[in-house]
Design a protein around this nucleic acid. Structure first.
Length: 484
RNA sequence: GCCCCCAUCGUCUAAUGGUUAGGACGCGAGAUUCUCAUUCUUGAAAUCGGAGUUCGAUUCUCCGUGGGGGCGCCA
């Protein structure tokens, strides 16, 4: 029912209707160039393509634009594929999968490009100059001084072309200079292979960053010259730096997907956040399962204006997703994190680890914090936080704390039922008898047994650590030279 | 310099030719709790400016301003 309504709704709201395209099966592609790392902007572009394919039941293909032989590395490709998989962006055609329109590496498609190049050459729409092949614009030519290039160049008064864009509407723009489609080193250029492959791979919608919008007039020129119908474009807004000027670059804090992988962010959280940069589900809810996002996603719903990246909001999403993890799943992920950070002994008792993790999950902002947060559960030497010590000692001084701890030892020793509820009830009574608040015991004991002033529920902490260790840690604390 | 895109709280955004302009992050206050985190309640916070169209404009048009992008034998 909802989807039927949405379909009607999106038709009604779609200002730019291209019915002749709608009858074809939708094919979109993500076409990265593996020259560095997996940038968050690229990931968002991949995500939007993927969402659109999944929403429409179309095909999402991955094409590797590795024409610049000098810059592409296997390692960079691996970053990309890992990142895609991590985000759950599976492709229907592409590397490791094949498909009817391969190969999906541009470095393996040289013959196809040559054919298209020769076609343009033969038609007089391209010509050779200085060893490179240029696409020839049609129109009156004159040599003028260019203020930007600070040189005399030949400009062409070509007729403007229309870039049909599902987000921006029709954008009319004229190219003014011939441009290179084949470099003198023998490699075809980006603009050229991009268009040739989109023709060959029957791409119906090109969803890419708005930084390509101005280039799109070159592409439309090429489509026209090659006798092909240009695809529908969707130039999505750019992701801007969280502070300062300009779009996010790979050197910016938080710009690389690898960073979130390394910091144990939950991919679902990252993906959910990325969906909301330039698109929204038209509800007050922002956090929702990917299936729901797929159902709601559509091109006309994408925003026109650039979005500033907000790491805090993403961290919040990560917290919410971490909290929502089932106990079993949290345990699996938690153990993986602890192992990766060597925070877990090889022979750690599985039930003990389970107890620790389920105790800590409700308080944890994200898996990244887990090793530090649980350190004292897995090691007897865990250090004492300076600020925590000061905070605890400030009120009653060392002597006062020692007195409280001594009382607490008596309390602990007397407990027969070592579980959260009984401990809580008993401590309440004990404190009352002593004329103290439970907080006095809790603060002092927490410092002695964990070295912190913050942590999980105190009674759970006692339970998981066990009576013996609680007592021995407090005794150890009391006999430390600095605590005498 | 030329061309293109864009403009609602600090940020991400919703909505509308007539609304108390809504939500989220962040920030402030309060409550709860053993701490922290949560949770709950709550507060502050926006329609870039100027014309025009209109009974009425944040919404439509134009101009300005501001922001972003492009102008490679990079992609």
């Amino acid at each position: 029912m909802g989807s039927a309504f949405l379909a009607v709704e999106s038709l009604r709201k779609n200002r730019f209707n291209y019915p002749f395209i709608m009858s074809e099966p939708i094919r979109v592609r993500f076409a990265p160039s593996p020259t560095g790392f997996f940038h968050i902007g690229s990931a968002r572009t991949a995500l939007f393509n993927w969402l659109y394919a999944r929403h429409t039941g179309g095909t999402f293909l991955l094409r590797i634009e590795d024409t610049d032989s000098a810059r592409n590395t296997q390692q960079a490709l691996n970053f990309l594929l890992d990142g895609m998989r991590w985000l759950g962006l599976d492709w229907d055609e592409g590397p490791d999968r094949g498909g009817d329109y391969g190969p999906y590496f541009q470095s393996q498609r040289g013959e196809i490009y040559k054919q298209y190049r020769d076609k343009l050459l033969a038609a007089g729409r391209a010509c050779e100059k200085d060893g490179a092949v240029y696409f020839k614009l049609q129109g009156e030519r004159k040599t003028v001084y260019d203020e930007f290039k600070k040189a005399e160049i030949e400009k062409v008064e070509a007729a403007p072309v229309t870039i049909r864009d599902a987000i921006h509407g029709d954008v009319v723009r004229a190219e003014t200079q011939d441009f290179v489609i084949w470099r003198s080193n023998g490699d075809p250029s980006f603009h050229f292979v991009n268009v040739v492959d989109d023709i060959e791979m029957k791409i119906t919608h090109v969803i890419r960053g708005e930084d390509h919008l101005s280039n799109s007039s070159k592409h439309v020129e090429l489509f026209n010259a090659l006798g092909a119908t240009p695809p529908v474009y969707a130039h999505i807004p750019l992701i801007l730096k969280s502070t300062g000027q300009g779009k996010m670059s790979k050197r910016d804090q938080g710009a690389l997907i690898e960073e979130y992988q390394r910091r144990f962010f939950l991919p679902d959280a990252v993906r959910n956040y990325l969906c909301l940069l330039g698109w929204n589900p038209k509800t007050d809810e922002e956090i929702m399962p990917i299936a729901e996002i797929i159902r709601r996603f559509d091109l006309p719903g994408i925003n026109k204006s650039n979005a500033r990246f907000d790491e805090k909001k993403m961290a919040h999403f990560n917290t919410v997703y971490t909290q929502a993890l089932g106990a079993e799943e949290f345990f699996e992920k938690g153990v993986a994190v602890l192992r990766a950070e060597s925070a877990l002994l090889q022979d750690a008792d599985i039930n003990y680890v389970k107890d620790v993790l389920s105790l800590c999950q409700p308080k944890l902002a994200g898996l990244e914090a887990l090793p530090e947060y649980t350190r004292y559960f897995f090691a007897e030497t865990y250090g004492e936080d300076v600020a925590a010590r000061e905070k605890t000692l400030k009120k009653k001084g060392l002597a006062g704390v020692r007195e409280v701890l001594a009382e607490f030892l008596i309390f602990a020793d007397a407990q027969t039922d070592w579980a959260d509820e009984p401990l809580e009830a008993a401590l309440k009574i004990f404190a009352e008898q002593k004329g103290r608040s439970t907080g006095e015991y809790i603060h002092a004991a927490r410092l002695a047994i964990s070295g912190r002033s913050v942590g999980p529920s105190f009674y759970g902490l006692l339970r998981v650590l066990g009576k013996q260790r609680v007592a021995s840690r407090i005794n150890a604390w009391l006999s430390k030279p600095e605590n005498l």
